[in-house]
Design a protein around this nucleic acid. Sequence first.
DNA 1: GTTTAGCACTCAAAAGAAAGGAGTGCTAAA
DNA 2: TTTAGCACTCCTTTCTTTTGAGTGCTAAAC
Lengths: 348, 348
Amino acid sequence: MELSERKKQILKAVVEHYIDSAEPVGSKTISQELGVSSATIRNEFAELCDLGFLEQPHTSAGRVPSPAGYRLYVNELMERRSVTPQEAEGIDETLRDKLEGVGGVMTNAGQLVSSIVNYPAYSVTSGNAALTVERFELVPVDETSFITVVMTSDQNVKSQLQRSALSFDASHLADLKHLLNTHFAGKSRAEMSAHLMSVSEQLSPELFLVCSKTVEYAAGILDEASKRDVETTGASRILKMPEYRDVDKAHDLMTFLVDNKENLPVPDDGAPLKILIGPENVNEALRDTSVVVASYDIGDGMRGLVGVVGPTRMDYATVTARLSYFAESLTKMFGKGLPSAGMNEEHK
Amino acid sequence: MELSERKKQILKAVVEHYIDSAEPVGSKTISQELGVSSATIRNEFAELCDLGFLEQPHTSAGRVPSPAGYRLYVNELMERRSVTPQEAEGIDETLRDKLEGVGGVMTNAGQLVSSIVNYPAYSVTSGNAALTVERFELVPVDETSFITVVMTSDQNVKSQLQRSALSFDASHLADLKHLLNTHFAGKSRAEMSAHLMSVSEQLSPELFLVCSKTVEYAAGILDEASKRDVETTGASRILKMPEYRDVDKAHDLMTFLVDNKENLPVPDDGAPLKILIGPENVNEALRDTSVVVASYDIGDGMRGLVGVVGPTRMDYATVTARLSYFAESLTKMFGKGLPSAGMNEEHK
DNA sequence: GTTTAGCACTCAAAAGAAAGGAGTGCTAAA
DNA sequence: TTTAGCACTCCTTTCTTTTGAGTGCTAAAC
């Protein structure tokens, strides 16, 4: 059954008032706004309660949106505005600042978002499990040590100084490098490990040791890259929100955000923006918070996620506008190629 | 003037009671403990107040240690115990766990300390400004790109894929490498920049561009390494402490710990352990907190710092014992050489 | 059939009043 | 010098009262 136009207006007004006052909304407030008497509003209130869109903290209090109310608001009632020029400018600036600073927008994405929307935020960089080693390079340093350079299929380069009991001259190294490249390049993490076994018999124990050390180093890089990484920031912002005046509640959410960040929602459909309201969150600890999460394109078909966590009384309009804009900006940046995107191994 | 033995005993008892109850301590409590009447204690209380070692929240309340009281306690009264076997075991285990995980004890040092002492903690890795590039290596990839490998004087290796408009064959690269190594290896950050100018005239514009890109990459590495890095963790632990039941107070400290971490005390005398009590902290925001900070040896004469932040009513005995043990363990580890200390460029 | 004025009613929160009790300071005696 | 005794302070707790925003319902007005 479809709600009457007036009921929608009322619901919208209640949600919006509640969002910026955090206080139950009374019939009088709404009556002034819509130009009908408070008695009429009260009748409508009662029906909206029956329908499950509003709730009453106690008999003689105003109304508060229920999760279903927020849902309807978000789906149909909310004006899906885009960012204002000022907002856009602010976000652009934040992005510029951080970009010039220490590389890796992705790593600070959470922090940026948090400062942009003023809620705690998180960022997920979903790992690439299909990554392989494109090539090995070995650069001699002195008799007993050399530099291992590993280039992965996403054109990242990492390197390490490696010492060995054996002494190597240039030709030995070249042989080892050839061996590594023919046997291990292009292989997945699992294949590399498996192959290491079969190679063991063909080599002298000493050489095998060096070889396996190198392969393990490479495997470590792939492992690291395949891991999903979740970072949260700005958790302390909740302390300024009336719903978290209760220290224990605040503590619970904060420790969840810090210690349990892996359980933050990571939607895997490709939707650009997802809103999870209160009990829609699977995770117990998020039952009376809302999460807005957006995905952006890293290139190579890979995606990153940035999310915002706040009370259900979240300013959905602003958050969605800013978060979308932020995610789109990131996508654009990766599309155009970052200053040194994919060419730089350093994070942070 | 030296305090009487009994006054010292009383002060010690008051501090210790207050540390674990967070409640003003009355004469009766102490009287039971010392076997003198409460009236006697009250007389002593009054004198200790006059001397500035105790304070009275209000007329009819018990006594609370003043900063000077804590100071005396820490300097003379506290039993400077070392960790119990159980504590040692716990810390060793924490260290082992994290060590095996993703490298860099230093980066997680703060987190480890926080979990060990149950207060917010921070870790400072003081940068090395004297670092130089030990050598450059250039590894060809294809006509227009190569891998730049930079090895710094602390034996760290970093590398980057570099593209160029120019096409390079092996001999060109060898020349460029020679150029880089003769002109820029062993130079400090500033010298490198300066030298880049003087080289500019000897090279073709295109070659100079490539050269300067490489040098800038190296300079960036040195910059990064010379920067002091402060990380804080466990800030939310304060929410469990009675002095931070007030959300605003908690918020202030937490945002300070997160956003102003650069202002956390970083003592530069070589003392292994330093305790800063309340107003002894220069920083306004730390005026009613105490900080215990220990330094550990990274090797090569470099030092790292780990610190603990808490209310002045901090459990100094436990914190100092555990923190010292932790710092000593780290020093030992770096001394013996970590699994791959100084050989691995990845952090985080 | 809506809408609205009117009114009695509810209930949380704020304000006030009273009781309780831990702790003090002071005095005077041991 | 120590301690018992006692009046006093003032925070905390509890209970009561007041207040007021907001409600639900009814009956009249549109």
